[in-house]
Computed example of a mutant assay.
Amino acid sequence: MCRWIAYSGSPIRLEELLYRPRYSLIDQSLHSRLGVETTNGDGFGVGWYTGNGGDEPALYRGTGPAWNDANLREIARSTQSPLFLAHIRASTGTAVQQTNCHPFRYANWLWVHNGSIREFHRLKRDLVLAVDPDLYPFMAGSTDSEVMFHLALTYGLRDRPVAAVERMAGLVESVGRAYGVPDPLQMTVATTDGDRTWCFRYSSEGRSRSLFYSTEISALRHLYPEQANLRGLSEETRLIVSEPLGELEGAWQPVPESSYGVIQKGDDELGRFEPAMP
């Protein structure tokens, strides 16, 4: 499968999360502890915002392993952002090519996914035909993840993100049942418009891939006053990760099964995720 992180908060250099933690995303590309595969070397990507609301995010993706990309290291060392998504890929059968690397981008939106649509090669035609014809030309790759993104856009991601992703999941499960595919959907997803970030953890079988969110910064400062890296972060700072980046006790909370979360200014949200037929 894959590993990903979503960051929102005080502007930081990308390297602070991609390279510096003990279990950084780059470390996870070689030594994932909770993933289906230990090594995630089938491409990578990072999408980041400059802080100007509504702007199209920058995107850098590569087909090689993340741990061996000198340009990614240079970008991470020199780029600051208040909101970014990063992803390392382990292919579930589609080609290793740049257009199949996450994040996927449409206008000011980004999307990353860990998981799969089971027997996607059988379900693909029906799912792609459900994509809005105006969105179809923007699909450049061949992955189930990109089809899921464009289905969510079709069902209203830009206006009602949670409902749109529930409708996407409902369609995948409906098509899967029609083809006799058991438990067709496995997903953890993060998507953002550059202002708010939504995450989803769901699987048809009820045993979803791992996903965690960071404890509130104020609570972490109280627990670990000696941690200098916590002092400059705002109370709004949050992280969503496929697996924890470190071992500080109390720093990471599991996202519940079949749920969604919203990172936003003010109070964040956590709710029940329920697929719905479109």
Rank of each mutant, 00 (worst) to 15 (best):
T188F: 03
P21G: 08
R231W: 10
W67Y: 10
A228I: 08
R3Y: 06
S214R: 15
A169H: 11
L123T: 11
S259R: 06
T94M: 02
S203A: 11
R33V: 12
P184D: 08
V131H: 04
D132G: 05
Q98V: 14
A70D: 02
L17G: 14
R160Y: 10
D42N: 14
A66Y: 03
L220A: 10
H31C: 07
S174A: 14
P278I: 03
E236T: 13
Y202E: 11
T92L: 05
Y60H: 12
F149S: 10
Y49M: 06
G250D: 12
I88Y: 07
L85G: 06
N114T: 08
H121T: 07
T92V: 09
L153M: 09
P21N: 10
A86K: 06
Y60D: 04
T94C: 04
E74D: 09
M1E: 12
R158P: 04
A86H: 01
Y19F: 15
P184K: 12
H150Q: 01
E166H: 12
G246I: 00
E166A: 14
A130D: 01
K265F: 09
R238F: 05
H121C: 06
S174V: 01
R3I: 06
W109A: 02
T192L: 05
G156N: 11
N108K: 10
Y179S: 00
L151Q: 02
R158I: 08
V36E: 14
E274Q: 15
P137L: 00
S208Y: 04
V128E: 03
A251E: 10
R167H: 14
T215L: 08
P161F: 06
D267I: 03
H87T: 12
A90Y: 09
E146S: 04
W252C: 11
L157M: 11
P278C: 10
V175W: 05
A86Q: 01
I75K: 04
H113N: 11
R238M: 08
T39W: 01
L245K: 13
H87K: 02
D195I: 13
S142V: 03
P184V: 09
L85D: 11
S142P: 01
S214K: 04
P65Y: 03
V96G: 05
H121R: 13
N40M: 05
S203R: 13
S242Q: 06
G35A: 14
T154L: 05
Q28M: 13
M168Y: 04
E205H: 15
E15R: 15
P275Q: 02
R61P: 08
